[in-house]
Amino acid sequence: MSHSKEEHHCWNCGEHSASERAARSLFCQFCNTLQAPSPDYYRFFSLPKTLAIDDEALQQTFYQMSRLLHPDRYGRRHERERNYSLEATAILNDGYRVLKDPVRRAEYVLRENGFQVGEQRSNEVPPELLEEVFELNMMLDELKAGDDDVIPQLDEARDRFLAMLDSIDTELDEEFRSHDAADDDGARMASLTAIRGILHRRRYIRNLIDEVDRQLTSRNA
């Protein structure tokens, strides 16, 4: 993403600064009042646009920024600063929720780069899963018909899918790293396309597991 030339212009003291650092800061470097926050999560957390993130450091940043920005700290300040505090804390909390979860984080970056994700609950079966899914649906039908003998087989299938989920997460991790290491936009976009494919598969398997769980629970109830 390209940024146009930005300037800092404080709403409170009126000071200008042309430095990029000042423009990106949440506080005016002259009077220290809170400025209108940026809705870009990476920028808000002052993070480079990488997909691999240090969880521990992210949590520390979250706590630290909460202390600085939370509306509790602005109870007796100017109304405009109070509103910025509310806005900024909402972005902080929303951003933390997205960034701390690898899947949501990846979806966020994909969306920022113009990919469509998540919305469509695609029924398209990933080709490599066709056979497994076919068998699973047979078993679920038998279970619905009252045949409890398939339960051990279903449990096995469930374990297989869980194992797949694990290996997908490893795969995702690797693809994150190759995305972060990409030295040109072409390589980066190729990586993102691959990630989108992995996420699609992951979501599909997750839904299958949920479906098996639902059927087994209603069977037991």
Partner: peptide, 8 residues
Amino acid sequence: NSTIPASA
């Protein structure tokens, strides 16, 4: 269980 303030 989303931390508030929260937005969408």
